[in-house]
Design a protein around this nucleic acid. Structure first.
Lengths: 334, 334
DNA sequence: TTGAAAGCGATACCAT
DNA sequence: ATGGTATCGCTTTCAA
């Protein structure tokens, strides 16, 4: 018969000490004599005792749990979540994972998240209303947006500079002498999607480039492939496509080669965004904008800790530059 | 000044009812008059109150949290975790994520997991000692292994039938008339790795096939590519490779085409295992063994719920058959 | 250094 | 239908 729930009191009785003492042994180094500490640890070991951190959170007002809201179908995020989780673990915090659909509003799930009294919240997909942002504030739950920002709201955010990234791509393609440009944009109205497109468009206009084609996708391979097919089947088919993300670029490359019989980069250049590990594989070898993910992750956690410790601190928007990674999916300047 | 921590008592005072009543409104439909319910909800809304589920867990002895221990570098798992998380969410439970290194023992992290009083635990990578398994049992925490099993231990497991999968591959390659077979095995001593190799080897022997080459990898693209390079550079280079997983197969395919100038499948056949979404992309088009992931996920959750509700139930080992998916990375029977 | 006792924020039993 | 109160497992004064 399993002893359902060994408590500190059980340990105390076995060790012949008070329950307070057991608590001391298992919390931050309080003054406990070596001898009693040993007795307590022995008793705990004996009973298989593990402190209940949920109960602890009641008194300490800290759960040591960080919520992460994400949607995983964009392959950029598993990659980020792994890094975040690993580092949080090193800091003694755990990750409570919430999955949302790309089109689903974070606002829907936020009340649920808040019920778990997470010490902080990282949102890597979609954004949240300023109403919900202030609800988090009221509960004292700091929020950091990863690769998103909400212009009005009082939440911190860590972002790749997507506008500048879009501009870099425009330069790259124009410098290579491309004549018929296209952009496969992200469908959702997120800051990331908007900014990548805006930077691209702004720079094209600045350089006097007239019009370009446009299609949409949802950051996934299949929808990128379909969008590219539509573009390639036009009479004025593009000779270069800027894809909103690498996942879309993989689809576009396969559409070119396998669906439409085009050579890359001779017939068409494809540029992505993110620099996923797969972008370096020779089968794709995608020219792309590398997001500084390690620094983004580190910064996210720094901001998080900062705001956990100083809840009154002003929210910060960190914008990190992306970097062109030239591979073989795009023609180079002549 | 943010009101740190709105409690049910605050709501009660504002609504002019007892704290018990507020509790009733927010827990399973207890009998509360429509009128008071409305008053309470209004007050709660007003204060931005969300019940503290951590506190609730103290009395209910249920955290509604399910732990998932995994390592995410194998791309099979993000895919699984997303499915699990989504379905758990639909069941009103949340996912607490723990990340381990492939070579790291789950035993190390298990005490930490247990401190969070998760209602149940899913382990998708590495396995656990029977000692730890019994510690879970003692705490009343049901464990389900996903794609792993521990022969001795009393824990439930849901697995693809990896032995049979290995046999299927052996048949496939011999039927196609291949003469110099190789296997890129998984380095870690897990049941998955062992069984895939065992099934393959057993079947080869049964069919009187003499010896085959062997190398190792860690389920990741890069190490698969390197293992394949080593094989291809041998004087007796293989004309067919069975890779322990799709991720390794991608690496092997790129090694063949881009590092060694071999054609697929004319010069060498590559077979994977898992059927990741990427395996269907035409750039790889991997012949592979499809794991029935949807059924595996559903079964995992069924077993979980079953054991949460009936902790005394005997552990179950579910073995689901994989299925050959023929694409173009392997030659077919003549 | 150790113990007693008062919370933390909820649930649940027992009255009314 | 509602309120009072003991309780969950721990931390944290306050005394000793």
């Amino acid at each position: 018969m399993p002893a359902r729930g060994v408590t500190s009191l059980d340990v105390a009785r076995l060790a012949g000490v008070s329950q307070s003492t057991v608590s001391r042994v298992f919390s931050a180094e309080d003054r406990v004599s070596e001898e009693t500490r040993a007795r307590v640890l022995a008793a705990a070991q004996n009973l298989g005792y593990q402190p209940n951190v949920l109960a602890r959170s009641l008194t300490t007002q800290q759960s040591n749990i960080v919520g992460i809201v994400t949607h995983i179908s964009n392959p950029f995020y598993p990659y980020i979540i792994e890094k975040l989780t690993r580092k949080l673990q090193e800091m003694g915090r755990q990750t409570l994972l919430f999955s949302v659909e790309p089109d689903q509003d974070v606002d829907e799930i936020l009340p649920l998240v808040l019920q778990y009294r997470v010490d902080a919240l990282i949102i890597t997909s979609a954004s949240l209303s300023s109403e919900m942002a202030s609800q988090c504030e009221r509960q004292g739950t700091p929020v950091v947006l990863f690769n998103r920002y909400v212009p009005g709201a009082k939440v911190s955010a860590v972002c790749c500079d997507n506008i500048e990234g879009g501009r870099l791509v425009a330069n790259l393609l124009l410098d290579a002498g491309h004549k018929r440009l296209a952009h496969i944009a992200g469908r959702a109205p997120t800051s990331t999607n908007r900014d990548r497109e805006k930077g691209f468009a702004d720079r094209l206009r600045e350089r006097g480039y007239g019009t370009w084609l446009r299609d949409e996708s949802d950051h996934a391979y299949q929808s990128g492939r379909e969008a590219a097919q539509r573009l390639f089947r036009r009479p004025d088919r593009p000779d270069a496509i800027f894809c909103v993300s690498d996942a879309v670029a993989f689809g576009a490359i396969d559409a070119a080669r396998y669906d439409c019989g085009l050579r890359i980069p001779e017939d068409v250049s494809i540029v992505g965004f993110d620099d996923l590990p797969t972008a370096a594989w020779p089968a794709y070898s995608v020219t792309t904008i590398r997001e500084p993910v390690n620094r983004m992750v580190d910064l996210t956690l720094e901001l998080l800790v900062e705001r956990i410790e100083h809840p009154q601190a002003e929210p910060v928007l960190e914008l990190l530059p992306g970097q062109v990674v030239k591979r073989t999916s795009a023609r180079l300047a002549i």
